[in-house]
Design a protein around this nucleic acid. Structure first.
Length: 585
RNA sequence: GCGCCCGUAGCUCAACAGGAUAGAGCACCGGAUUUCUAAUCCGGUGGUUGCAGGUUCGAGUCCUGCCGGGCGCGCCA
C-alpha cells in the first residue's frame, strides 16, 4: 500500500463531497491536489496542499477552506487529528495502530513489498550497455550498465512489462578495424613476427585468442588472400568473440539482457530503408546543404548537398544528415531504423541509457522518434556522467598494459559486484561520480554499501538470537504478521515504521521519474533508522529488541526487525545486491 | 559561436510533481559501549541554494539574461 496515494484518494472523495455541498464549485480541477510526507515529521504524518491549490477557484481564503477540509478529514478512519499550518497546509496525524499495521503488510508481502501496478503492464524497452563489440567492458561502461539494469528492475517492480535490450553496433568502420586487428593476430598465430600493433588497430591482447582460434580452425586458409576475401569472416568471428567476452562480463555482474539486437542484421533486413520511407511519406526528408557549425568550423569543411532529416521540425537545432558521401547510411540513419524497429516491436516507451558523451545526440534522436511514430512513441535518454576512479582520494592508476583500461572484470575482482552496483547508484545519473577503490571497502559509516549491509546483518543477528532465546515460541514470519503489535510505542520505533511504509511510494516515484538512485538513498535512510533504534536500546535496556522477561514485547519487536530486514532485502533485490546474514568472515 | 548537463554548509552530496524553518555524511567540538557484532549511535557549530531579474499564495526546483565547470557540434559509433 502506498500510504500517500491511499489517503490522496480518500481526500479526493472528501473534496468531491465539498463540491456536492457547494463549498467548492462544480467542475473544480482537483488534479494539482497532493498528499505528501510533511517536510518536518513533527508536523504530522501526512500533509496536503489542497486548500492552497483550491482557494482561488473556491473564492475562499486558503485557511478558511483548509478548515472546511480539515473538519471532514478529522472524521476519516485512522485520522487522529488535523491542523492547519503556514499558508494553508493541512497536516494529518494517523493513529499508531495504522502504522503498526503496515508492518503486517511488509511481513505478508515479503520482498514483494513495494511492488506496484502503476505500470499497468505497459511495455517498456530499456536499452543499456550497448558497448561496441571491440573489446571487453571497462570501468567506463559500468555505470550505465548498473543504472540501466536497476532501472529495468525498478520498472518491473512498479508493474511495467520490461524488456532489457542490448544494441550491438556491429556494422560500422570500427568493426573493420577489429577484423584487421584480429587478422594480424591470426598471422601471429601462424608464426609470423608481426612486430608492434600498427597505429589505428586495436592492440588489446584479448584478440590473441581470436587469432589462435582461427589459425587452429582454418590453418593457412586466409593468409595469402586479399582483404576483401577474409574481411567478412574475420568480422563475424571477431564480433562473436567480443560479444562472448562482453556477455561474460555482464554475467559476472548479474546482468542478463532479454534481447540482443544487431545493427548489421537490421540494415540487411532493410530497416534503414523502412525508416527513410516512413519519413519520406511524411515529407520529412530533403536534399540540402548544411551550414558549418559556427565558431568551430572544421578545417576541411566544404559545403555538400546531403540527404537530410527535418529534425528542426521536432525541436532539434539543425537538420541532420542521413547518408554519407560514400553512399552508406550515417549512424544516425541506422539508429533511427533501430528505434523505429523497437517501436514496431511493441514499445511505445523506450529508454536509452548512454554515456554523457552522447549528449549532443539526444535532441536529434528524440526528434527522430517523434517523427517516425507520429508522436505516439516516447524516448527518454538517461545520460551517465563520468566515473572518476580513485584510490584513497587520489586518482587511481590505470593499467599500463598496451591499450587496456581498467576492465570491468578487474574492478569486480577487486571490490565485488555488490559494491559496484550500489556505489554506481550513490549519485544521480547526470552528476559525475567518484569511485574510490579503497573507501568502498571501508567498514564504516562513510561507506554506504557497508552501512546498509550491516543493518541487514544486524537484523538477522537479532532474529537468530531470538530463536535461541525463545525456543518455544512461534517466531515464524506468518506468526509475527499476526502478533499483537501494541507494545510498539516508542517514537523511534514509530519513525522506523513510517520509513518502511514510505517504501512503496519511493518505488513508484523513482519508477515514474526513471531515477534508480533514489532506491540507494532510501536504503541508507532505512538503515540509519534501524541503527538509531539499535543504539537507543543500549542506552535504555527497555528498548532492546529482546527482553527475555517479556515475550509479548519481544515478539512485537521481532516483527519490526523482521520487517526492516524484509524491506532492506526488497530494495537490495531491485539493486541486485545480496542481503547478508552476517558480516563476519 | 551554438546545444545539452551541472553549480546547494569548509568537503562530498540529497531534496520525492512548485510546498512550510533547504536536509544527510565527512571534517570540527562535546557525549554514549562489562554489546541483541560500538564496524554503531546522540548532541552542537556550520547556508544570500553561482549572480540578477521574472512567473506564483509559495521557487534549490519553472522562465529570461549573465558568471563558472563538464560534454558535444556534417561523411565516428
Amino acid at each position: 500500500m502506498n500510504v500517500f496515494k491511499h489517503f490522496g484518494e480518500v481526500l479526493l472523495g472528501e473534496l468531491e463531497a465539498l463540491v456536492a455541498t457547494g463549498t467548492l464549485p462544480a467542475g473544480t480541477d482537483l488534479s494539482r491536489v497532493s498528499v505528501e510526507p510533511p517536510r518536518d515529521p513533527a508536523h504530522g504524518d501526512l500533509a496536503t496542499n489542497a486548500a492552497m491549490v483550491l482557494a482561488k477557484p473556491a473564492g475562499m481564503k486558503p485557511r478558511d477552506l483548509a478548515q472546511a477540509i480539515a473538519d471532514r478529514l478529522a472524521a476519516v478512519a485512522h485520522v487522529t487529528s488535523t491542523n492547519i499550518a503556514g499558508p494553508g497546509f493541512i497536516n494529518i496525524r494517523l493513529h499508531d495502530v495504522f502504522w503498526r499495521d503496515r508492518l503486517r503488510d511488509v511481513l505478508r508481502a515479503g520482498t514483494k513489498y513495494g511492488d506496484s501496478d502503476i505500470g499497468h503492464g505497459a511495455p517498456v524497452n530499456v536499452e543499456y550497455v550497448s558497448a561496441n563489440p571491440t573489446g571487453p567492458l571497462h570501468v567506463g561502461h559500468a555505470r550505465g550498465t548498473v543504472v540501466g539494469d536497476v532501472l529495468a528492475a525498478l520498472l518491473a517492480k512498479a508493474g511495467y512489462a520490461v524488456t532489457r535490450e542490448y544494441y550491438i553496433n556491429d556494422a560500422g568502420a570500427q568493426i573493420d578495424v577489429l577484423a584487421r586487428s584480429a587478422y594480424l593476430r591470426y598471422r601471429e598465430a601462424l608464426g609470423e613476427d608481426i612486430g608492434g600493433i600498427p597505429e589505428g588497430l586495436y592492440p588489446g591482447n584479448y584478440l590473441v585468442a581470436v587469432g589462435e582460434m582461427l589459425q587452429q580452425r582454418d590453418g593457412e586458409k586466409w593468409r595469402d588472400l586479399p582483404e576483401d576475401q577474409w574481411l567478412p569472416e574475420f568480422r563475424d568471428v571477431s564480433v562473436a568473440a567480443m560479444m562472448d567476452l562482453i556477455r561474460a562480463d555482464l554475467d559476472s555482474i548479474g546482468v542478463r539482457h532479454d534481447v540482443y539486437s544487431s545493427e548489421q542484421a537490421l540494415i540487411r533486413a532493410g530497416g534503414v530503408e523502412n525508416a527513410i520511407e516512413t519519413l519520406q511519406s511524411r515529407n520529412l526528408i530533403y536534399r540540402g546543404t548544411l551550414e558549418p557549425p559556427k565558431g568551430k568550423a572544421p578545417e576541411d569543411w566544404e559545403p555538400r548537398p546531403q540527404l537530410l532529416f527535418r529534425a528542426t521540425d521536432f525541436g532539434d537545432d539543425t537538420d541532420r544528415p542521413l547518408q554519407k558521401s560514400d553512399g552508406n547510411w550515417t549512424y544516425f540513419a541506422s539508429d533511427l531504423a533501430y528505434h523505429l524497429d523497437k517501436y514496431q516491436r511493441g514499445f511505445p516507451t523506450m529508454i536509452d541509457v548512454l554515456g554523457a558523451d552522447h549528449g549532443g545526440y539526444v535532441k536529434r534522436m528524440k526528434a527522430g522518434v517523434k517523427a517516425l511514430t507520429d508522436s505516439s512513441g516516447e524516448l527518454d535518454v538517461k545520460l551517465c556522467q563520468m566515473v572518476r576512479l580513485l584510490a584513497a582520494g587520489k586518482p587511481a592508476k590505470m593499467s599500463k598494459r598496451a591499450g587496456t583500461y581498467v576492465t570491468l572484470s578487474d574492478l569486480l575482482d577487486r571490490v565485488g559486484g555488490d559494491v559496484v552496483r550500489f556505489i554506481m547508484l550513490t549519485r544521480k545519473n547526470d552528476a559525475p561520480l567518484d569511485f574510490d577503490l579503497v573507501k568502498v571497502k571501508d567498514e564504516s559509516r562513510e561507506n554506504p554499501v557497508f552501512y546498509v549491509h550491516y543493518a541487514h546483518a544486524r537484523c538477522r543477528s537479532v532474529l537468530r538470537l531470538a530463536a535461541a532465546e525463545f525456543a518455544a515460541a512461534d517466531l515464524s514470519i506468518a506468526a509475527l504478521a499476526e502478533a499483537d503489535l501494541s507494545p510498539l510505542t516508542d517514537s523511534t520505533e514509530l519513525a522506523l515504521m513510517r520509513t518502511m511504509a514510505a517504501w512503496p511510494r519511493t518505488v513508484e516515484s523513482a519508477a515514474l521519474a526513471h531515477e534508480p538512485h533514489r532506491l540507494a538513498f532510501y536504503l541508507q535512510e532505512l538503515a540509519a533508522g534501524f541503527h538509531a533504534l539499535w543504539t537507543k536500546g543500549k542506552d535504555d535496556a527497555s528498548l532492546r529488541f529482546l527482553v527475555p522477561t517479556n515475550l509479548a514485547l519481544s515478539v512485537a519487536r521481532l516483527a519490526m526487525v523482521q520487517a526492516v530486514a524484509t524491506v532492506l532485502a526488497s530494495g537490495m533485490e531491485v539493486i541486485g545486491v545480496e542481503p547478508l546474514e552476517e558480516l563476519r568472515s
